[in-house]
């Protein structure tokens, strides 16, 4: 069922927000180009190159991922205001698939964008002789791309969708909370860029574990909330 709902979301997204989607993806590419150009300028100026460009790019992408969260906004508003949501709730056993499908679309788009531009970054670095992923940090970078980033974006997306549908009046306040969560996760990633110590690896593993646990908790919660509450928040 999730697959059917995801296809519907993508179909509506292309019908309503195709331009916004393309711009969001291009903006992440712009972020990559800024990171790579900064390294090039450092080299030209004779400044010793340091830091971890991949981590910087990942943090930047994470910040820009919040743009993707707004992409299903028009569809969500339409469903709530017209009653399409009520009709669909009448067809499903629990609201979970309706909510999870929206989050899956948002995570998929943000993640695909990160993977695309990380690939471009690696190719760019290989072609120009610059360093994108530091030597010895490939495993960490792979973990960030494959697990931490999608898990963290999933957390934000699920919260965003859940609050937007269940307590829309609280959404502005909740968004501030979401921003705080984002900031903490940002900081964590920034710390990783400065150190590849054993402590940072444990920190990364613990953060990933907490995020995955909260994601699982939210998905569980979406299965038990009342349809009446969702149809009439």
């Amino acid at each position: 069922m999730i697959g059917i709902l995801v296809r519907k979301e993508l179909r509506l997204l292309t019908a309503t927000s195709a331009v916004a989607l393309v711009l969001d993806v291009l903006l992440v590419g712009l972020g990559l180009s800024a990171v790579m150009t900064l390294g090039r300028l450092q080299a030209l100026a004779g400044v010793p190159q340091g830091g971890d460009r991949f981590a910087l790019f990942a943090v930047l992408s994470f910040g820009l991922a919040s743009m993707f969260l707004s992409l299903t906004g028009p569809t969500a508003l339409l469903e709530r205001t017209t009653g399409i949501l009520d009709n669909q709730l009448g067809m499903v056993a629990s609201p979970r698939p309706l909510l999870v499908a929206k989050a899956v679309v948002l995570v998929g788009l943000a993640w695909a964008s990160l993977v695309l531009w990380t690939g471009v970054g690696v190719a760019w670095a290989a072609a120009t002789g610059q360093e994108f992923v530091p030597a010895g940090a490939w495993g960490r970078s792979l973990l960030v791309v494959a697990v931490l980033y999608p898990a963290a974006v999933a957390l934000l997306s699920l919260c965003h969708v859940f609050v937007g549908y269940m307590v829309p009046k609280l959404a502005p306040i909740a968004n501030i909370g979401l921003f705080a969560v984002t900031f903490v996760l940002f900081s964590n990633l920034v710390n990783l860029s400065g150190s590849l110590s054993a402590w940072s690896r444990w920190d990364l593993a613990a953060t990933t574990g907490v995020v995955l646990a909260v994601v699982a908790g939210l998905v569980w919660l979406m299965g038990i909330v009342s349809k009446e509450r969702m149809a009439d928040p």
Partner: peptide, 13 residues
């Protein structure tokens, strides 16, 4: 099968 007093169909599709 049911029809509510609210639409179920997406106007854009």
């Amino acid at each position: 099968g049911f029809v509510l007093d609210l639409p179920a169909l997406y106007p854009q599709l």
